[in-house]
Computed example of a mutant assay.
Amino acid sequence: MDALRARLDRATAAAAAAGLDALLISPGSDLRYLIGAGGSSFERLTCLVLPVGREPVLVVPKLEQPGYAGVPTDALGVGVATWVDGEDPYELVRKALKGTGRVAVADMMPALHNLRLRAVIGGEQVLAGPVLRELRMRKDAAEVAALRKAGAAIDRVHARVGEWLRPGRTEAEVGADIAAAIVAEGHELAEFVIVGSGPNGASPHHSLSNRVIEAGDVVVVDIGGPVAEGYNSDSTRTYVLGEPREKDVWETYAVLQAAQQAAVDAVRPGVTCEEVDAAARQVIADAGFGEFFVHRTGHGIGLDVHEEPYIVAGNDLPLEPGMAFSVEPGIYLPGRWGARIEDIVIATDSGAESVNTRPHELVVLPA
């Protein structure tokens, strides 16, 4: 509870420093970060009103109030304003604001609510993301512990992939088994499962298909999901069924492994996100595969699978201890095969801590 109260205080202080009069936070990961419950966004408005200099108010439909029963609103100093169908919830927000001004609205607030709020409260509206991401990028000890828990859970799934990945099965069949294991090994759900076999592995965001996996296939397996605390895992390993059909697999994969390690080695306080990206990209480019590395090196992770900071060219944000993000370079040869290695790392005072400990070598499974 103390941690949540501190987050609310830091959020309002950051809002004041940004020249804002209030934050308006709809259901989602921002709301979960601030009060411990994310809720769901439907056609009925739920909104946490965080005015600068006054106590926050949670505006929530009475029929959805039980979903927030676990939130210690009294201890947090959060007022609750309920409403029923036929009443105007947007007026409740206006009353909680006690006047118009410069207000920041949650980035993912549905337009259905955003436009109605704009009409009712007036004033200037901007996005809340620039304020909240400054808080959410730097994980505290409890958040780091949750990320470690998620990393260990997904490592246990990767350790079992050989139970399901074999010739004669479809990607969809393998993916269903992996999804069940993600839950069995400690996640709340399987947020995503990618099984990209053979030429499908050359598509970084391939999901699952009815392609039958064959002996000699290189297979990219990218999986993750949230644990009970809401924090996510995300880890990729690349497998091969027997001896790879294409002769350049081992040499190419060695380049990828060196690139991933170079990026992890580059992580330390003060190094910029784009410098970490460049460390991986340079190794791949020097080996002649630059055009086949088609995405950023990484993304932040926490209550969302993708959040700040992004490890990408053009991002000159210096790393700080507590920042958590993926390091996941890939090489994708269209129509042939692809490979990716992904760990989640946490910036420390002196370097990087990986929450994933599975080996980085190309995993050979029986054909």
Rank of each mutant, 00 (worst) to 15 (best):
A3R: 13
R7N: 14
A11V: 05
I25D: 03
L31Y: 01
I35L: 10
I35F: 06
G36T: 06
C47V: 12
E55Y: 00
E55I: 00
P56A: 14
V60M: 12
G67E: 08
G67S: 10
A75K: 10
V93C: 07
A96L: 02
V105I: 14
V105E: 08
M109E: 03
A111P: 00
P130R: 15
V131D: 02
A146S: 12
A146L: 02
V161F: 11
W164L: 13
A180V: 05
A180Y: 07
A184Q: 11
H187I: 01
E188L: 15
G201A: 11
L208T: 07
R211P: 03
R211T: 03
I213G: 01
V220S: 04
D222S: 12
G224M: 03
D234H: 14
P244K: 07
R245T: 02
V249P: 10
L256M: 04
A258L: 02
Q260V: 02
Q260E: 07
Q260K: 10
Q261V: 00
V264G: 12
D265A: 09
G270Y: 09
C273T: 13
A279Q: 05
T297P: 01
L303A: 15
I311W: 01
A313G: 12
N315V: 15
E320H: 08
E320T: 13
V327K: 06
P329E: 05
I331G: 08
A339Q: 04
V345A: 03
G351L: 05
A352E: 02
A352D: 02
N356F: 06
L362N: 02
L365H: 14
P366Q: 15
